[in-house]
């Protein structure tokens, strides 16, 4: 096991609302890792993400985030969580706002981060547009830009690559590379195997109320065995 300080630790965690969907989760996430969470619908993937985000209390066990900086946790839910009646700039700026501390240069820093993020996602021409007028793919890019502007240490993304065509997936992945270079870890719920192969470094498969932790190679091997 690596001696590196993990970003996230799950110790004997039971996840669910009333009854446990996933039992006794023991896992840790290291800086720079990209974890894809796989499993059939309703198995508890979103609940796992929401538990790590602190939105659902674990039924048992301990979830520890080792994020030191302000706004260290980024979150892109399935419904994206954008402020529909506000502009693209306002939404992306929320990410910067969450992570930049009060200082003389904070407004300038916020502006720079927003400009960089929208440029990376190719939505710089939509800055003034209200979010409610954008297409599904554009909305996902705005949510990703918000995370980019936040520069979190751990990003939780629930199916953020779904509904995107191949070209848009490439744009988003290229933009997220920037975060990975800064050492951000990502936990993402994903259904498409090709996106997992393109992006993930480790796989969490939820099966029979258990979380199985695989490396990419182990996962590929398990798929071959199943076939």
């Amino acid at each position: 096991m690596s001696t590196q300080q993990p970003v996230l630790e799950l110790k004997n965690v039971d996840i669910g609302y009333n009854d446990a969907l996933v039992n006794n989760v023991i896992a840790r996430v290291l800086p720079g890792e990209i974890i894809a969470v796989l499993g059939p619908s309703g198995i508890g993937k979103t609940t796992l993400i929401r538990t790590i985000a602190g939105l659902v209390e674990p039924l048992q066990g301990e979830v520890t985030l080792h994020t030191k900086k302000k706004g260290g946790l980024g979150y892109i839910p399935q419904r994206l969580g954008l402020v529909r009646h506000a502009s693209v700039r306002h939404n992306v700026a929320l990410g910067a706002k969450a992570s930049i501390s009060f200082s003389k240069t904070m407004f300038e820093e916020r502006r720079n981060r927003v400009d960089e993020a929208v440029k990376a996602l190719g939505i710089e021409d939509k800055l003034k547009e209200p979010v409610r007028r954008l297409s599904g793919g554009q909305l996902r890019r705005v949510a990703t830009a918000r995370a980019l502007a936040q520069r979190p240490q751990l990003l939780l993304a629930d199916e953020f690559l779904s509904e995107l065509d191949h070209k848009n997936v490439e744009i988003v992945i290229e933009a997220v590379q920037q975060l990975l270079e800064d050492g951000t870890s990502i936990i993402m719920v994903e259904h498409h195997e090709e996106n997992v192969r393109l992006f993930a470094t480790r796989i969490w498969v939820i099966e029979d109320n258990q979380l199985h932790d695989y490396s990419l190679e182990e996962w590929e091997q398990s798929l071959e065995e199943e076939e």
Binding site: R50, L80, G81, L82, V83, G95, K97
Partner: peptide, 22 residues
């Protein structure tokens, strides 16, 4: 909608910031 509030909570936005910005 609860999703934008959940995002601001997860991101660590303060209560006044959430009210003003979201």
């Amino acid at each position: 909608p609860s999703d934008c509030l959940e995002v601001s909570r997860a991101m660590g936005l303060s209560h006044p910031s959430t009210v003003v910005s979201v």
